[in-house]
Simulated assay, not measured.
Amino acid sequence: MDTFAAADLEIIDYAPQYQADFRRLNHEWITRYFELEPADHTTLGDPQTHLLDPGGFILLARYHGTIVGSGALLHNPDDNSWKLAKMAVTDQMQGRGIGYTLCKAILERARTMGVTRVELVSNRILLPALHVYRKLGFVEIPLGTVMYKRGDIRMAVDL
């Protein structure tokens, strides 16, 4: 994977056979900067129950047959909110627009579903990720209560 051709990048829907890839990608980035928290183990261990069943979805980036990125849109039925989460691109493929492409695809699908606002929680040290979010229209909003210790910035975009 030394050279990159965007035409060879596919954005595909999550399926159970990709659970190990989804877990690997998220473990990789989280442990690079932070530590895995109980909520990570729960969500990554059973994405069907915790991400898909409540009405969300996961998209994956596949390059030459290898899953190199992931992202999810989570639905909270209690307050009908939507959150972008579990965005990850494998280290050797970062900086090539894959995260942007994934995030854009997630927001486009959200629009087709009638979602009007998407929020996310991130960390200020993740400058490339924050750049992607801002490029896609996300703006900082008050942090409020967050699930993860690593979360120190909340952003939202109106669709």
Rank of each mutant, 00 (worst) to 15 (best):
R62W: 12
H75S: 12
D13M: 01
M87H: 01
E10I: 00
G137L: 04
H75I: 08
A72R: 01
R96Y: 10
G114L: 07
V146L: 07
E140C: 03
W29T: 01
A129T: 07
E108Q: 09
H50N: 04
H50V: 00
D78E: 14
L51P: 03
T66K: 15
D78H: 15
L130Q: 11
D91N: 05
L130H: 14
Y148K: 04
D13A: 05
Y33R: 14
L73C: 13
W82A: 10
T3M: 13
C103Q: 01
N76F: 13
A39M: 14
I30R: 07
K86F: 08
P38K: 06
L126A: 04
N76Q: 11
G114S: 06
C103D: 05
A61E: 10
T90S: 02
V139L: 10
N80A: 15
M87F: 00
I67V: 15
R23P: 07
Y148Q: 06
W82H: 13
L107S: 12
R111N: 08
I58P: 02
A110L: 08
F138I: 08
N123I: 00
F138D: 11
D158P: 03
Q92H: 12
I125N: 08
L59D: 07
L36F: 06
D8I: 02
Q48P: 04
A85I: 05
I11G: 13
C103T: 14
Y148N: 02
V89E: 00
L36C: 04
S81I: 06
P47R: 08
G56Q: 13
M155L: 15
L130W: 11
L25G: 04
A5E: 11
R62H: 10
R124Q: 13
V118M: 10
L159D: 11
G99N: 09
L102P: 01
L127K: 15
K149N: 13
R134A: 15
G99C: 13
A88N: 08
